[in-house]
Design a protein around this nucleic acid. Structure first.
Length: 864
RNA sequence: GCGGACGUGGCGAAAUUGGCAGACGCGCGAGACUUAGGAUCUCGUGGAGCAAUCCGUGGGGGUUCGAGUCCCCCCGUCCGCACCA
């Protein structure tokens, strides 16, 4: 037995052992050996899209964190579900395949096996028997099956909607995939186009998606983002009568959050897409048409960029403000159209109250429209009297029946008045829109629907699922917006219950597969149903879900939506899928640029005394911290780190850098400290100069009941360390756990023969979630035949956390002036006397006005 | 503009929740052992000062015997959202 710390040999051996023995395979209810009395713990990572470039060390941070949790939970006696799989469908996978000239099926297979290899390489204890791949027909059969449940409940529908079309990608994109008029992926320009699309009625769940946020343990920032995205706003709907148009178009309904300002509405604005514009009088037809055309041609980017300067035209139409009697001339107000009013929100039309809305105010000033004051600001705040718009709460004025009311009451009263006259009612709106769910792309789940000759669209029968994605050699987008699947002629023609039918040629978006994968992990090989009731009843919900904050809105909102639908269908027993969500911070890295601002790959940089120079040329470079990206030349590959330093060292380093939630920069230089720690543990137990499995004094249990001297000291240190390790799991700041273990090992190393076998074994157990390979190796060297993965987690005995004597700081006027050592049970008088004696020079010639004694903490003298 | 997170040594970071600021590690300095060391071990390392001591948690105020921690104002960084009526 070689006794040098050989990370490659050790890690290979244990990686193989775990795999050969399927050590981390979790048993389901009903399986032989399943222990129904053990508590369950479901710890889940956001599964990755397996990209062609493989994992970098930044991706691993979260996976290592969840692995530590999973390993500790097993040792605490939980049945742990800790699975991994692949989010393999979607645009990036398809684009990668196109770029490499291969079929996504093949590139996906290569990429996933590389990912799997890398994840195993860093010692992650996944139950690989539960691996799923969203692009596998055995998986997407059930994605389609769930879609059918949505379809049956009226939550999936087709609509001709203006959608984002990306010319470069030849596909439609959802609102949230378009940022400032450009595609989120690839940054290509996008335009709006009306197209017939599949939509999911997520808006029907808006209220519940909002409400149930209160019941889950998620970061406040993510909840805030979801609330913002759902965008609930309470107000009223008010009907204005439009004059001089056909009766069926004469009602112009607006949504407002400020019904109390109705008396101050001096004009109206409709979105350029609004149906009322069909009825513009001939005198204004040309101007309006020109404006509408101009607005349509603008990308969203231009529309927002030009936000500074409002545009719009008068339609020639007038409406009557229902605040005033029919004959009252004050009620006659002009209707404009302007692109600052959005077609998709509220009713696409507003009543403009320039006195109390910034946007209306700006518009009124530009086009010289009247501005009325109907809300008096509270004392001390600026309002129209000072030439500025006042949008806050105040007191109603110039508003007839609601004059004198404070804004909240004025709102309520205004709604009552409108309702009584049948021209308005309370209404709540949401910013959330229905989810655009179809893509004219190849690499996604086909819709489980067929089109019949008479135009009906019907779902295919459950037993005909999956509708398999046909193999196509040319699956590139067509360019005219039609889907690639339209070219799969043999596939397209089918039958439905004997009738000729044509398949739907759209595919689902990349998000579909990730909307329920945590459920499939519970029962991944079930061929009769997506998961069994027993499995879901036991494992659900996910106890801890870890991933990047980037998915704050889309994935997490969509997943919650599907889960709630499944709850309504009776297929899951919880309203929410993820009880606790945790966002790991991004791992950043240094990058370098030269004097001209050009990036220099890290491989070409030389560090001389913390200044940085280009290798060869020698010019000085500027270092900065940024995300890890291939384009920045600063990607660190875990394969290299594992080969050179070991997986255990990599894990320790990534955890030791800082709290899991924080962003922090990778610095290869710092790894050595983690490696030194692992080696120090090794040497504390193994003597590298001998061939003994462990040091002689650790070979047998001395079984000393009474510890004393250094052994007692180490026992106390060990309990303190374990306590700190335990504490670190609350907020996943494992950096403090590692620091505690380092301190203990430092103390133990100073007293090479004092460490007892029991202490050494407990050290190994506590270390094992963080550095599992070396821990297993040491455990087996102690002579244990079985893996430590299911050994009991060492407990903390409070007796060892306290000392008989305490060192207490002594302050004078709040400043540290001395220290005293007193017995744990010393009376206050004794402590004060000792404290006085400890700081004589600071008390000399002074009067002690007050003495503050915080038990076991400090003494503070206030002197004069 | 709105919402969220954050700001502590040369660097990554600690700090029982109001009680010894800088644990632990990197780097750096000195030394030991070595034919050698980019190995290992020991000691030192916030700043100023010969020292006693003083100053120090983005800046400025405040509460308190005592503030990194609580309150008010400001500055800066990062991440969302952004004409949502």
């Amino acid at each position: 037995m070689s006794n040098a710390y050989d990370h490659i040999g050790i890690e290979n051996r244990w990686r193989k052992h775990w795999e050969d023995t399927a050590l981390f395979r979790a048993k389901n209810p009903g399986e032989p050996g399943f222990d129904p009395k053990a508590p369950k713990f479901y710890v889940l990572d956001m599964f990755p899209y397996p990209s062609g470039s493989g994992l970098h060390v930044g991706h691993a941070v979260g996976y290592i964190g969840t692995d530590v949790v999973a390993r500790k939970k097993r040792m605490e006696g939980c049945n742990v579900l800790h699975p991994m799989g692949w989010d393999a469908f979607g645009l990036p996978a398809e684009q990668y395949a196109i770029a490499t000239g291969k079929n996504p099926r093949e590139t996906n297979a290569v990429n996933t096996s590389n990912y799997r290899r890398q994840l195993k390489l860093i010692g992650l204890s996944y139950d690989w028997s539960r691996e799923v791949d969203t692009s596998d027909p055995r998986y997407y059969r059930w994605t389609q099956w769930i879609f059918k449940r949505l379809f049956e409940r009226g939550l999936a529908y087709q609509a001709e909607v203006p959608v984002w079309w990306c010319e470069e990608l030849k596909t439609v994109l959802a609102n949230e995939e378009v940022i400032n008029g450009r595609s989120e992926r690839g940054n290509h320009p996008c335009v709006r186009r009306p197209l017939k699309q599949w939509m999911l009625r997520i808006t029907a769940y808006a209220e519940r998606l909002l409400e149930d946020l209160d019941s889950i343990d998620w970061p406040e920032s993510i909840k805030a983002q979801q609330r913002e995205w759902i965008g609930k706003s309470a107000g009223a709907e008010v009907t204005f009568r439009v004059q001089g148009v056909p009766a069926n178009a004469a009602e112009l309904v607006v949504f407002t959050t400020r019904p109390d300002t109705l008396w101050g509405a001096t004009f109206m604005v409709v979105a350029p897409e609004h149906a009322l514009l069909k009825h513009v009088p001939a005198s204004h037809r040309a101007a309006v048409d020109a404006y509408v055309a101009q607005a349509a041609s603008k990308s969203e980017l231009e529309r927002t960029d030009l936000a500074k300067e409002k545009t719009g035209v008068f339609t020639g139409l007038y409406a009557h403000n229902p605040a005033f009697d029919a004959g009252d001339a004050r009620g006659r107000i002009p209707i404009w159209t302007a692109d600052y009013v959005m077609a998709g929100y509220g009713t696409g039309a507003i009543m403009a109250v320039p006195g109390h809305d910034e946007r209306d105010f700006e518009f009124a000033r530009k086009f010289d429209l009247p501005v009325l004051e109907v809300v008096r600001p509270p004392e001390g705040e600026k309002g129209l009297a000072d030439g500025v718009c006042f949008a806050g709460d105040g007191t109603a004025v110039n508003s007839g029946p609601i004059d004198g009311l404070a804004t909240p009451q004025a709102k309520a009263r205004a709604i009552e008045l409108l309702a009584a006259r049948g021209v308005g009612k309370a209404r709540t709106t949401y910013k959330l829109r229905d989810w655009l769910f179809s893509r004219q792309r190849y690499w996604g789940e086909p819709f489980p629907l067929v089109h019949l000759a008479d135009g009906r669209i019907v779902p295919v029968d459950d037993d005909a699922l999956p509708v398999e994605l046909p193999r196509m050699d040319d699956f590139k987008p067509s360019g005219d917006g039609s889907a690639p699947l339209a070219r799969a002629k043999d596939w397209l023609a089918t039958t439905w219950r004997g009738e000729p039918a044509r398949r739907d040629t759209d595919t689902m978006p990349g998000w579909a597969g990730s909307c329920w994968y945590w459920l499939r992990f519970m029962d991944p090989t079930n061929v009769r149903e997506p998961w069994s009731r027993d499995a879901e009843g036991y494992w659900g919900p996910v106890d801890l879900y870890v991933g990047g904050a980037a998915h704050a809105v889309m994935h997490l909102l969509y997943a919650r939506f599907w889960h709630k639908v499944l709850y309504d269908v009776g297929l899951v027993h919880t309203k929410e899928p993820f009880q606790r969500l945790f966002n790991q911070g991004m791992l950043t890295a240094f990058a370098y640029q030269d004097a001209t601002g050009r990036l220099v790959p890290n491989a070409d940089v030389e560090d001389r005394d913390n200044r940085f120079y280009r290798k060869g040329a020698g010019d000085e470079l500027t270092q900065f911290v940024t995300k890890m990206a291939k384009s920045l030349g600063n990607v660190v590959n875990p394969d290299d780190i594992v080969r050179e330093h070991g997986a255990d060292t990599l894990r320790i380093y990534e955890l030791f850098m800082g709290p899991l939630a924080d962003s922090k920069p990778w610095n290869t230089r710092d790894i050595s400290g983690s490696r030194r720690f692992v080696e120090r543990v090794w040497r504390a137990i193994v003597d590298p100069d001998t061939s003994d499995p462990v040091r002689p004094h650790l070979a047998v249990d001395q079984a000393t009941p009474e510890l004393s001297g250094d052994a007692l000291l180490l026992e106390k240190e060990l309990h303190r360390a374990i306590r700190r390790v335990d504490d670190s799991f609350a907020s996943l700041n494992f950096n403090t756990a590692i620091a505690a273990l380092m301190s203990f090992v430092n103390e133990a190393s100073k007293r090479p023969t004092a460490l007892t076998r029991s202490q050494a074994e407990r050290l190994v157990l506590v270390l094992s979630p963080f550095a599992p390979h070396v821990a297993e190796e040491l455990w087996s060297r102690f002579g244990h035949a079985r893996s430590l993965a299911y050994e009991a987690w060492p407990s903390v005995d409070p007796r060892y956390l306290e000392d008989d004597t305490l060192e207490i700081p002594v302050q004078v006027l709040g400043k540290l002036r001395g220290k005293i050592v007193v017995g744990k049970t010393a009376p206050e008088s004794e402590i004060v006397a000792a404290a006085k004696a400890a700081v004589p020079t600071w008390l000399e010639g002074k009067t002690i006005v007050k003495t503050i004694v915080v038990p076991a903490k400090l003494v503070n003298f206030v002197v004069r």
